[in-house]
Design a protein around this nucleic acid. Sequence first.
DNA 1: GTCTCTGCAAAGTCTTTGCAATACG
DNA 2: CGTATTGCAAAGACTTTGCAGAGAC
Lengths: 150, 150
Amino acid sequence: MPCLEMLIELFRQNGRKITPQRRLILEVLTQHSEHPTAEEIYQQVVITMPDVSRATVYNTLRELMTLGGVTEAFESGEGGVRYETNPGNHHHLFCTRCYKLVDIHHDFAEVALSPGELAGYQIVGHQVTFYGLCPDCQEREKDEVLSSEM
Amino acid sequence: MPCLEMLIELFRQNGRKITPQRRLILEVLTQHSEHPTAEEIYQQVVITMPDVSRATVYNTLRELMTLGGVTEAFESGEGGVRYETNPGNHHHLFCTRCYKLVDIHHDFAEVALSPGELAGYQIVGHQVTFYGLCPDCQEREKDEVLSSEM
DNA sequence: GTCTCTGCAAAGTCTTTGCAATACG
DNA sequence: CGTATTGCAAAGACTTTGCAGAGAC
């Protein structure tokens, strides 16, 4: 659903121009299955278009944010803000050790607040994040326990 | 629950020393009802102890993180990472416009994933974040609509 | 042709580090 | 007393800005 055409349309409809740089940035963003940082997007972009500057990447991401095409996801750990398209109905599995962030597609329709708890907020969505150790980090923890016991 | 004594105990038990600076930083952190940024903690700290440096605040927060006494909450918007004590059972109400973050105390015990969805993760907790407009920002939006209609 | 966008480099934020002096336990 | 911690200033990481020239529509 976060297809390239939709994002391009979004730019067009808001009077923004579609430059090759922007198109490429959007492509990288939509094809990236993880949640890239600005720097990662930049690195990906310069492979095919070496003269693109970081400023352009940052500018484009910021434009996209104000247009609602991406959101900043979870920045915890290192490396700067991570971006994600399709802020729609999906949730996260977050490794507290290596900071990997994985999408879950599951409908938590039952999650809702009572009017009293809303404190007057007008809710537009919600997201559930599960914290834990990813399989790789579970292994690493085991190894550490073993070596510390020696 | 995130009382000062617990955090101090946490430092002690890990062989850390309790300096007046640290004590003050921990006090500010536990008494702060919102989710302060490092800078906000610093500003609060220098009121009573003007010679404390930012480095000390950052160092202490980092120590606390590795000891598990605080977590980085949601950084979305501006101003840097926000910290929070009691990462326990509570959830968030997040204003997408002014980035205010409010705690909700509600037990979403029904939120769980099937083994297949876990992808091998060992879950230790979960957090639900509701997105929307806080009452103040709803007002601001209304005002904008009115003025743009003229 | 107009007006936005780009690329560069410089500036701005936020955070970390190196090191000598200090002070906790 | 020994060792962790402090404060300072400088460095580092991430992001934004200013401006002249280029390019989309």
